[in-house]
Each structure stands twice: as structure tokens, then as C-alpha cells.
């Protein structure tokens, strides 16, 4: 069932997102060509600036529109009239959420690599690959110098944190929408309200936690404090929060669904 849901989720989202990716690559290639010919003088001197503006706009559009489209898709597909179709499929609410979450993670990761690839297309010249691998090596040396034998741990923790924060940014919106749909006639407004409420609550919680940690920890000036204490702590807290968002979203859709 999840495979089928994923298939249709990808179909529904790619009709907007694939053109967006294509536009970005088109502008990357166009700019590469324009930049490599130094022939735009006089009345044509506006052309390089013009194509670069297009490139930057398509870059911004990719990031913003991807995010917005994934949110609209979730909201419209599950809480509007389309919810009648989705929630009467022979699937559990959790499978509907999973399919949307996995699709959103996939598009987020893809848009990251698309941007990377477009930057390479635009700026990469021969020999750059050596420079990039040099930079990675130097970075690794710095990390080893700072964290000693905790260097691998540090990298793994950073990767986990990045993944968790992608999931967090998606789930926090899902839970806001799941709460917002409880309010007849003003679901969208209530979703925004829920989102702001959750963000404020988190802010208060973080402030308190940071105050406690800085006051109670004797090793705060030691940099290995990051991989041995702070990162694991944040990973656990982030996981717990994500678990709560997921559980609440699933509970509300399974038990308190409020389609108009």
C-alpha cells in the first residue's frame, strides 16, 4: 500500500517540481555558455546580467516553491474535499502520512543535490575537483585536531542532526495542519495559529534548557563537549519531539478527522 501511495504522491508532486528542476538546469547551462563567451558588449551587455538574474530567481524558486508545494499538497490532499478520497482508501492514516513524509524528504534532498549540481555546471572548471577534495581533507584535519578520536562520531552526529532537522521542519507543519483542521471554516488560519503556538512553546523550552545546561555543565569550554554531550542531547530531544509530532498528527487524523 505504501508503494502505491508513494507512486501517486510522486506523480502529484512531480508535475510541478520536475519543470522547476528543468528550468534551473536550463538557466545553469545558459549562464555557463553566456559566461564563457566574452562577446556581450555595447547594447548586448545586459544579456549576462539578465541570464544571471534568471538563474538566481530559478534557484530561489526551487527552494521556496518546493517547500510551499509540499505543504499545500499535504493540506489540500488530506483536509479539503480530496480528504474524502484519501481517507477512504484501504490504508491506515499512518501510511498516508508516511507516504507524504517520505516524498517530502526525497524532494528536499533532491533539491539540495540539484542546487549543488547546478553550481557545478555553472562554475566548475578543470582542476576544481582536486581543490574540492583538498578542502574536504583540510576540513577533516581541522575536525580531527579539535575533536581527537571523536572525529568520526562528530561527523555521524552532524549527519543525523541534518536528517532529523529536515524531518522536524516537515512534521511540525503536518502537526499544525492536523490541529488546524479541527476548526471548521478557518482551518488554514488555525493551522498558522497552531504553527506559531508550537514555535513559541519550543522557543521557551529551548531557552530554559540552554540556561540549565550552561549553568550546570562544568565542561562547557571544552570543545569535545559537542560530540560527547550536546549533540547526543539534541539528537535525543529532536527524536522525541519528532515522535510527538508524528504521534499527534496520526492520532488526530485517525480519530478526530474533520472533513467539511
Amino acid at each position: 500500500m505504501l508503494t502505491k501511495l508513494l507512486k501517486h504522491e510522486l506523480k502529484a508532486t512531480s508535475r510541478y517540481l520536475v519543470p522547476l528542476f528543468l528550468i534551473l538546469f536550463l538557466f545553469s547551462i545558459l549562464n555557463r555558455i553566456v559566461l564563457s563567451f566574452d562577446i556581450f558588449h555595447g547594447m548586448f551587455s545586459f544579456i549576462p546580467g539578465f541570464t544571471m538574474l534568471g538563474y538566481v530567481l530559478s534557484l530561489v524558486a526551487l527552494v521556496v516553491v518546493t517547500y510551499v508545494i509540499l505543504i499545500i499538497r499535504f493540506y489540500k490532499n488530506l483536509t479539503s474535499e480530496e480528504g474524502y478520497l484519501m481517507f477512504t482508501l484501504p490504508a491506515k492514516a499512518s501510511q498516508l502520512i508516511n507516504s507524504k513524509l517520505l516524498t517530502s524528504i526525497l524532494w528536499t534532498v533532491l533539491s539540495f543535490f540539484a542546487i549543488l549540481l547546478s553550481l557545478f555546471t555553472l562554475f566548475l572548471i578543470e582542476g576544481d575537483f582536486n581543490m574540492i577534495s583538498d578542502a574536504f581533507q583540510r576540513g577533516w584535519q581541522v575536525i580531527t585536531m579539535e575533536f581527537g578520536d571523536k572525529n568520526v562520531l562528530f561527523i555521524i552526529e552532524v549527519i543525523i542532526l541534518v536528517i532529523l532537522s529536515i524531518i522536524d521542519s516537515i512534521l511540525i507543519i503536518y502537526v499544525s495542519i492536523a490541529i488546524g483542521q479541527l476548526f471548521n471554516g478557518r482551518k488554514l488560519l488555525a493551522s498558522f495559529g497552531a504553527y506559531i503556538g508550537i514555535k513559541i512553546a519550543l522557543q521557551v523550552m529551548y531557552t530554559i534548557i540552554i540556561a540549565i545546561i550552561t549553568m550546570s555543565s562544568p565542561h562547557f569550554d571544552d570543545v569535545t563537549f559537542l560530540p560527547t554531550f550536546l549533540f547526543p542531547f539534541v539528537i535525543i530531544m529532536q527524536s522525541v519531539l519528532n515522535g510527538i509530532y508524528y504521534w499527534v498528527t496520526n492520532y488526530l487524523f485517525a480519530n478526530k478527522l474533520n472533513l467539511e
Partner: peptide, 21 residues
Amino acid sequence: PGPDTKKIVSYLPDKSYLPDW
């Protein structure tokens, strides 16, 4: 009501429930 019953119930809601794209 659950995934198993949804397999055997064919439901026509009183809405335009199909995605219009």
C-alpha cells in the same frame, strides 16, 4: 471500519472529492 472494510465498501461522497488536476 478500517483498511479491511474500505476494501469492500464503495463510497460516493456528497462532494467533488477527486483532485481536479
